[in-house]
Design a protein around this nucleic acid. Structure first.
Lengths: 109, 109
DNA sequence: ATAATATATCATTGTATGCTGATACGATAA
DNA sequence: TTATCGTATCAGCATACAATGATATATTAT
């Protein structure tokens, strides 16, 4: 008998973490910790290309990690849930202790 | 002037999240929430192949997310830090609210 | 209506990495 | 020592996905 946890749940959780597992998306989310921003503002703040940002915003939005609101010809984005920030903060904390390992880990690029 | 957060930190954080962003690694970590286990026990619990498990354990170990201790010809693995479990728990909580979005998100396989 | 600005979409390309199967290594038992 | 069991490593293949550049859409201004 396999003791595997609910496979669907595991797969979903993996996907959720993937939402956080990209530098561009993390930059966006870190930027949004400062409050709502338009796409242009995010582009300026991160230094990433507009299409790149838009692609990632679509991803984050699809996953429900950020929410968007159209304001005139701008679209304002924000973190959708306080737990998104909590997750970022907790990861930061954990990282203070595992940074060296993560940095030196040869299994993740 | 770019307002980018420390790029190195962002890259490391992305890597850290990648550690969590794979179903096999998540299965392993979920399994280890039940306490220390040998590789064989993890293989049985998850139903994944031995080499697959060993590869992922090497990754998790390299990142400092799990710790290992040799016991005879066995190696017992455990979660290395309570915050690893906290991160898993928080993700689970968040997932209760964003599950649909994550499931339907076309940007992540 | 036309132009200009803000954002989104899409195809392409390159790269990262997960999985498998074979094999090597290491520890104990016979 | 030899066999056996537990674990680790590695190469090869297949796939996922991030970044770019071009273009489409949408909103306001002239």
């Amino acid at each position: 008998m396999l003791l595997t946890a609910n496979p669907t749940s595991i797969a979903l959780q993996a996907r959720l973490f993937r939402g956080f597992a990209d530098p561009s998306r993390l930059s966006i989310m870190e930027t949004l910790r400062g409050g709502e921003m338009t796409v242009t503002e995010i582009v300026e703040a991160t230094g990433l290309s507009q299409s790149n940002i838009s692609n990632h915003l679509a991803c984050l939005r699809g996953c429900g990690l950020v929410a968007a609101e159209q304001v005139g010809r701008y679209v304002r984005y924000r973190l959708s849930d306080p737990r998104v920030e909590q997750l970022l903060a907790l990861a930061d904390e954990l990282l203070t202790d595992v940074a060296r390992g993560v940095y030196e880990c040869i299994h993740l690029k």
